[in-house]
Write a protein that binds this DNA or RNA. Sequence first.
DNA 1: CTACTAACGTGTATTTTTTACGCTTTTTTG
DNA 2: CAAAAAAGCGTAAAAAATACACGTTAGTAG
Lengths: 224, 224
Amino acid sequence: MNVKDKLYKNQGIHVITAIFTVEQGITKVLLVKRKNEPFLGDWILTGGALYNNEDLLSGAKREIAEKTGIKEIDIYQFGVFGSVARSPVMRMVAVAYIGVIDSKRVQVLRETLRTSNADWFPIDRVPPLGYDHNEILIEALKELQKKIISSTILKSLFPGIFSLPELQKVYEAILGTKMDRRNFRKKILSLDLIEDTGETAKFEGKKPAKQYRFKKKIAEKKVF
Amino acid sequence: MNVKDKLYKNQGIHVITAIFTVEQGITKVLLVKRKNEPFLGDWILTGGALYNNEDLLSGAKREIAEKTGIKEIDIYQFGVFGSVARSPVMRMVAVAYIGVIDSKRVQVLRETLRTSNADWFPIDRVPPLGYDHNEILIEALKELQKKIISSTILKSLFPGIFSLPELQKVYEAILGTKMDRRNFRKKILSLDLIEDTGETAKFEGKKPAKQYRFKKKIAEKKVF
DNA sequence: CTACTAACGTGTATTTTTTACGCTTTTTTG
DNA sequence: CAAAAAAGCGTAAAAAATACACGTTAGTAG
């Protein structure tokens, strides 16, 4: 290998995904414990090296399936991380994604995740992570907040039926703000994204809440 | 090299920048003619391979300086392109940036660019480009339209003094829309980004226009 | 069984932002 | 010097965001 080659060669691509959920009003992120060097034993976001025969999105999804057992998930690219020293082994550039899993699926996944050495961490209780994953997580969270304000990712949070108070609590958990119940309702309904199921069910409160579901096709729209 | 290595090895990173300007109401992009295989003789966006000893932003700026002679430019990362077949030589993932150069600097750069085999192309008269650069350019233009609506990149378009009608024409050229002169003025002035120089100068019209300049420090703000 | 409370749902008033557009001023042109 | 073109100033209407009052439905205490 000649001198010029050293400038270019031995580079690689990471595909990294920050997977979020909201349980009981707490925003949580999925972390995996590393089983190899470097960063053996450290918690990191789901991800790994991209293969040559797959595109970025496929690679990110394959890594999620391999590392956590999660097969079906919509993910969204949001950034690239390329500091020279972000990996101690060789020059790696990370392409970063976010994804969301609804809290009901979290229950189902619990055993799968346990055997994968994966666990949910409240976002304000995340330990120091391997690589530059703390930095990536901070950006991922900002992106999640942006994305929740555009409609599509919202649907992943509630694939089934839900009430508006439930939906609002998830919004408030992710955005870290409180909103007016009546204005929230008005806003969401005016978007024409969800429909009344005709059913009601109680969630926390005393008066049962109407149950809604997302309509089949959702146009990409600004919410707030 | 064993079988598993083939999955990961021989990967590289491109840093690509779409550099735009606006001249006489026409949005233009800077293209460079390739001097080597692959895509010898084709026009492409400014860019090249990332070195191991530089981060992404530095790499993109180095490539701009090498390929076009442009030394000072603010650029903004906006996406990643990683199709398996985007480069015929080896697996390359491209990190993409946009940048803007004001029309006055375009005049100064003309000779430099000529010797670099670089030239400005109106965005609706771009030839088929090498690699996947047509695709990158389309995304870059969308991003430019988004960015012009957030204040910071706006300043790169007019580093000196300018009139509001001039500024509006650039907006209209990039966004491809017409706006009301009086509302545009109101909007821009309310942002508190620019200040009156006290001078006037005629641009196209009959009545001379007031000259403005951007204030020193500009907060990141939504414009529209 | 009744009264009280907590949470849900509906409606309306107010404020702020956006959009539309009339009118005056300054310069060029015939 | 009158007409036309472009800049600038101001106000009115429409739309969106925000604030908040009030009625409804269940659980709970006595």
